[in-house]
Each structure stands twice: as C-alpha cells, then as structure tokens.
Write a protein that binds this DNA or RNA. Structure first.
Length: 722
DNA sequence: GACCTGCTGATTTTT
DNA sequence: TCAGCAGGTC
C-alpha cells in the first residue's frame, strides 16, 4: 500500500488517505479519478474496514465492473466480492427486493423499461380518450419521469398544476402509479423513488442500512439527479463518510434529470466537507488540453479549475472538411488507415458522433475498407421486438400480475385475441374492481367474450401455470426453451421470412444458458433484473483490434490514443433544438468537451458541407463551437470532394466579430422588452429583457407554453411579431 | 379478427 | 428513410 501511495501526486494522495467525514473530489478529465477512487477503497480495506460496510455507486454497470476489477487486482477477489458496488439502480433494486413487502410489492416485482412505461401510458391515454396530439405518450412519460426524479408525487403534482396540460399529466401520473402497483411493477425512476419512500416510512429499515454502510462512494457525481442525491444523504447521514467524485464540466445528462446543484449544494449540506481538486491531467497532450480548455471556458456555469499536464505538446488537431456524410466517412477511414500504417492498432482508435444514426455511413465505409470495427450501444439486443416478446413471456412466469406483458403477448403469435376481447377484459376488470390478471383468470364468467377466445385464454393461463410450478425443477435455459416453444413464440418467428428474428431468439436462449452457468444460484427473477438494468454498452468487449464506433455519451469515462469526432456541425453538435436554450447549449458544449478530452495523442474533428437528414440532402454549416477553438492548435484538411474555402471561415469570427449576419440587428429590429415574438418550438412569447453583446446576446422570453426561457439570440430563430 | 396501407414523426443522449 | 401506429378493408 505504501508503495502505491508513492505513485500518486499530492492531491491524489490526500484524497486516498483522507480520514473520515464528507469529501468532495472535483476531478478534471484524465486526472486519475478512477485510480483515486479505487485506491481509496483499497486503502480503507487495508486499514481494516470490512468490505461489506462499503457502498460504491456508479452511473453505469461498466464503471462498476471496472472499479471492481481494479480493486480485485489490489486486494484480491475475496474481499472485493463483498463490497456493495453497482449502479444506483441495481443496488437499489437489490434493497427493494429484500424489503419489497414493506412497500406492498413482492420480491418478484417487474422492472419496466422506457418502452414498457410508454406503452402503459399509451394504453392509459387511450382509455382516457386522449389523442396523441393532445398528449403524446412518450412526452407524458418524460413529464412524469421528471416529476419523479424531483421527488414530486402525483398528489403534489396535482396540487401544483396550473395549466390544463399539467393537470392532465398529474391525472395520468396518478393512474400510471396505480397501474404500476397493480402490476407489481416499477419503472426506472421508481427504483430510486421507492427506496427513498421505504427509508422515509420505515425508519428501522433506514437505520439498518445507515448502520451497514459506513463508507459511501459516488462516481460521476455530476450525473446524479435529485432523487439520487436525497437517497445518498439518507444513507450516509449516520457515519457521514460520503465521498463523491465528479466533474461539472462533464455533466451531460441534464436531460435525464441530472442536477448540477447536487455538486454546488454538497458544500452547503455538508459544511465541514473537504474539497480536493484533481487538476493534473495524465491523459492528453498539451495541445488537446488547450483545445478542451478554450472550449469549456465559454460556459458560464462551472466550477473554476485549471487543468494542466506534463505531457508533451503533441500535434495540432486535424479538422477534416468534407463534402457530405459519405465523404466524411471515407475521409475518416482514410485517416484511420494512415494511422494504422504508422503502427497504431485499430483498437486504439475511436470514432465518436452525436447521434446513433450517424454510425451508418461510418460502418459502411469501414466494411468496405476492411477495417474491423465494433459498434458500441445503438439499438440494444434486448430492445428488439422478438426479444421483448420472449422477455414478456418470461416476466409473466415470475410476475403474472404484469399487465403490460400480458397485453404484449396475448396475441403474439396471433391466436384470435383481438381488440374486442381486450376491451371486454378491461371492462370486466373495472367492473369487478380487480387487476387485469384477475379478470383474465375469470374470463369464463365474461359472456361477451367469444367461446373460442375464452378457450384460448384458458389454455394459455394453464400453460403458464404449468411452467410456473415447474420453475425450480429444470435448468433455466431448458425451461425457457420449452416454454417459448410451448406458447408458440419460437414457431411463430421460425416461420418468419426474416430469419434474423429467429436467430436472435436462439441467441437469447443462449444468453439465458450463459447466465445460468455463471450465477451460483440462478433464478429467473435475478436474470430479468440483470437484463433490465444492463445495457449492451456495458457488455461491449474491451476489444483489442477493432475501431470503436460510439456516441459521445457512450464515450464518457473512456480514453483512446486517437479520437475522431464527426459531424461537428450546427444542428448536430449542438443538436438543433438545444442551440436555442442556453442551458442546453452549454450541455452540448460539455459534450464536445467530453469528446475532446477522450483523446490521448491525436484528435480529429470533422464536418460535412452537406448532410442527408431525414431523407433529404441539406446544406450543413460548421458548428459554432469550432470558432471557440484556438486556431493555432488546429490544422484544416480539405477532402478533395469538399468545396475549398467555403464554410471554413464561417467559424473564424475574428474576420467579422460583430458584423456576422446572425448577430446583426437585421432581422431582429424591434427585439426589445415587451415585444411579442414567435419561436419555432415554444410558440409565441413576450420578451422580458435582453442582455449580453454580439455573439453572446441573450433574450429572456416568457412563453405561454413553457414559461420563461433564456435564449441565445443568434440561435433562437425568433421572429418579432408586429 | 387478420391483414394491408398510408401517415407521421423520429435523428439526441440511457439506467 | 424507415419503423411503428392507426385506421380501413375483407
């Protein structure tokens, strides 16, 4: 241990050997954050702290696995295995399973993913007779999720609602909540919310966990939302050994409820907290760091910090100007080849982009050039239709009350259960005031349902029951295989002309077998939880010999010798609608910052002059962020297919600092407090005030639909109404 | 109740 | 461009 400490810089060592009490570590990109976290945990273990009293929470499974591996390497697996380590969601799911009865759930509760939730809401909206134009199911899900993340109950939401829309959301929230309970199901947000509820309503349970967790660690703290923060405070209040590590400059999950206040409030809630800054960067060259730093300085909201490095200066970044997205992909591939020829392994190269859709031309170009690549993320295996069908069947074995799964599979494969039958079941459930499943079981007493349909339902329920009772007696994968065959799902997809679906199902059963092999005591319930909370990103092979293709979000926490960031264009990065709201624009800037700081030695940025978007070829402009990067660290390379000169100086504002057309008064005459304006998304609003100058000119508008918004004038596409 | 067709909106990001 | 949904037809 002493030797390990010797390898750390003073700030890192301070953090690792810090005694008891709240600790806030602001860790800049590449400053050895994970190292500090793992060493500190190892240090505590070395000092004799029992591993089962340490709780370490991460944001992704990947981060948790990596941390556990590193700690295993330091202290051995017997102790590392006993640590409580995982994502917020998986650790809380585990706690909730142990305490489910206290909340009126059974330990077999089902976890709904986003799609399940949206489906349930679509169902409820239809039941309320509300069309998607009034309230779209996924917008409703988003709104409810936001409320939940802020710990607002439906009662509170209803009380606070002022607009018809808010009232509707509150009503829907209530129905949704009741449905979840009736289904013995929780959505992602509930895993946090219900844990907090559990702690609030059962002080004895809280006390038990407080007593257990003497040390609590949180990685990527800037990504926590309000609910997570409250849970943390509750859990750590007994020993107050809460150690959080984060970097506000890398906060890229605001849209998911991540609340930057959690960093700022930490020192307020823990006045005796110690703040340690890790500012020495071990990852990137000086020039890459200079680019990142210059960029992030344009953000107004941030904790001041100065990253520095002893690494060499390195090369300037290369900006590739390309004709269109295919040309861009071709250029990227060419430079990948160039790097490879100079001894760079493919596995040391990553290509990053803003949206998953951008991966397609890149994949194609790689394939054509014979360059091995791995696509990280994108449509998860477990989100495919056929896999979700299979999962729905399996969920019902574990939790038959899950009406969402029933609705999904009742007529898959088609067995003559249509809208009419469903409607009768629903009516019956309402009449008898029972769950959907209860109504289903009593379908024989619903005369409105056709005899043949009743018979089909009865057989299905019986089949399910048979497999349910057989649950413990067969190997998991055998049971699943026979079950899916018996209900007709395998046969259904086997007959499909599209063979991929059937192959996916085979793969799926193989993953069940794999799980059963790895787990000491495999259960379907545990398997389902695993599937619900583990994304494919987590399983992305730590590959050796393939170029990694992934979104900027997925790249967080990773590093690569060579990084390409593609599509650095206005409307893509920043993404179109984000550019209009200052907070969102700053988040986009942080996203690019995250991308740049992934690079160790070489950085490439690229943009296309034309890009096909939703089927149409549109001219594309370079991202305004490019103009924020110091020119001396960038070398511009034109694709032979690109129009030279054009568009390059568009991002060099020194030529036209205050006369650039977007900022000039032309088109904005009449923009003054009191003016009525129209915004393409928010509709009509009233200008309250103006601030800033030139490029930074901002306007505060009150919209009827969304309330007050602070907008950057040069992006907002505001139209002044006379 | 099954199947077909046309429309719409998505292309943010994920536990 | 395309998938998924809604509505219409047989």
């Amino acid at each position: 241990m002493e030797e390990l400490l010797y390898t750390l810089n003073p700030a890192q060592r301070h953090a690792v050997t810090f005694g008891d009490g709240p600790l806030l570590i602001i860790a800049g990109a590449g400053s050895g954050k994970t190292r500090v976290l793992t060493y500190r945990i190892a240090y505590l273990l070395w000092r004799g702290v029992p591993p089962e009293t340490i709780l370490a929470l991460t944001f992704t499974n990947k981060a948790a696995d990596e941390m556990r591996q590193r700690i295993t390497a330091l202290v051995g697996s017997s102790r590392a295995q006993r640590l409580w380590m995982g994502t917020f969601h998986s650790v809380f799911a585990r706690i909730l399973r142990a305490e489910a009865e206290r909340l009126g759930y059974t330990p077999d509760y089902t976890i709904y993913d986003t799609e399940d939730s949206t489906g349930l809401l679509r169902f409820l909206l239809r039941q309320l007779g509300i069309g998607p134009h009034v309230l779209d199911p996924s917008a409703a899900r988003h709104a409810i999720s936001r409320l939940k993340n802020q710990l607002i109950s439906w009662q509170e939401a209803a009380a606070a609602a002022t607009t018809p829309r808010e009232r509707l959301v509150a009503q829907l929230y209530r129905e949704y909540d009741q449905q979840l309970r009736a289904n013995n199901a929780m959505d992602f947000d509930d895993l946090l919310l219900n844990t907090i509820r559990l702690f609030h309503h059962h002080p004895d349970v809280l006390a038990r966990y407080q007593e257990r967790f003497r040390y609590v660690f949180v990685d990527e703290y800037q990504d926590t939302n309000r609910a997570q923060y409250v849970a943390l405070r509750l859990l750590s209040s007994r020993f107050r050994n809460l150690c959080v590590v984060g970097d506000d400059a890398q906060s890229i999950y605001r849209w998911r409820g991540a609340d930057i206040r959690n960093i700022l409030d930490f020192e307020r809630d823990f006045p005796d907290a110690t703040l340690i800054r890790l500012e020495q960067n071990y990852r990137s060259t000086k020039r890459i760091l200079a680019l990142a730093d210059a960029l992030i300085r344009h953000n107004r909201h941030q904790i001041p910090k100065q990253l520095w490095t002893e690494n060499p200066d390195g090369e300037p970044a290369t900006l590739l100007v390309c004709a269109d997205e295919r040309d861009e992909a071709a250029q990227v591939v060419e430079y990948i080849r160039w790097e490879h020829e100079r001894g760079r392994r493919y596995g040391e190269i990553a290509v990053l982009y803003r949206t998953n859709a951008q991966s397609q031309p890149l994949e194609e170009a790689c394939r054509r050039a014979g360059i091995p690549y791995v696509l990280v993320g994108s449509l998860s295996f477990y989100q495919r239709k056929e896999i979700k069908d299979a999962l729905a069947y399996i969920r019902l074995l574990v939790n038959p009350a899950d009406s969402v799964s029933w609705l999904r599979i009742l007529n898959v494969p088609p067995r003559g259960i249509g809208a009419a039958t469903l409607e009768h079941l629903r009516t019956a459930a309402r009449q008898w005031n029972c769950s959907f499943f209860d109504a289903l079981q009593r379908c024989d007493s619903i005369p409105e349902i056709r005899r043949s349909a009743r018979e089909t339902l009865r057989q299905l329920i019986e089949l399910l029951h048979r497999f349910r009772t057989a649950l413990g007696s067969y190997p998991l994968e055998v049971l699943v295989l026979e079950y899916l065959e018996a209900v007709g799902l395998l046969g259904y997809y086997r007959g499909d002309e599209d063979e991929e679906r059937y192959q996916n199902l085979e793969r799926f059963i193989a993953t069940v077998a794999e799980y059963a092999e790895q787990s000491p005591a495999p259960t379907l319930q545990e398997y389902l939880q695993h599937v619900s909370l583990v994304s494919e990103i987590d399983q992305a092979p730590a590959t050796g010999e393939a170029v990694m293709l992934m979104t900027l979000h997925a790249a967080k926490g990773l590093e690569f010798p060579v990084v390409f960031i593609t599509g650095v264009e206005d409307g893509l990065l920043p993404i179109a609608h984000a550019a209009r709201v200052l907070e969102e624009l700053e988040e986009e800037r942080r996203l690019l910052y995250v991308g740049i700081t992934r690079a160790q030695h070489r950085l490439y940025l690229s943009y296309a002059q034309y890009r096909r978007r939703w089927g149409e070829v549109l001219p594309s402009r370079p991202s305004p962020f490019l103009s924020e990067l110091p020119a001396e660290h960038i070398r511009i390379e034109y694709s032979p297919n690109a129009v030279p000169g054009a568009g390059v100086f568009a991002h060099r504002p020194q030529a036209s600092a205050d006369t650039s057309p977007a900022v000039s008064d032309d088109g904005f005459s009449g923009m003054r407090p009191g003016a009525r304006v129209r915004h393409p998304v928010f509709g009509i609003g009233l200008v309250e005030s103006l601030s800033g100058h030139g490029q930074e000119r901002r306007v505060l508008v009150r919209f009827a639909t969304v309330g007050r918004k602070l907008l950057l004038l040069r992006y907002a596409q505001l139209q002044v109404l006379e």
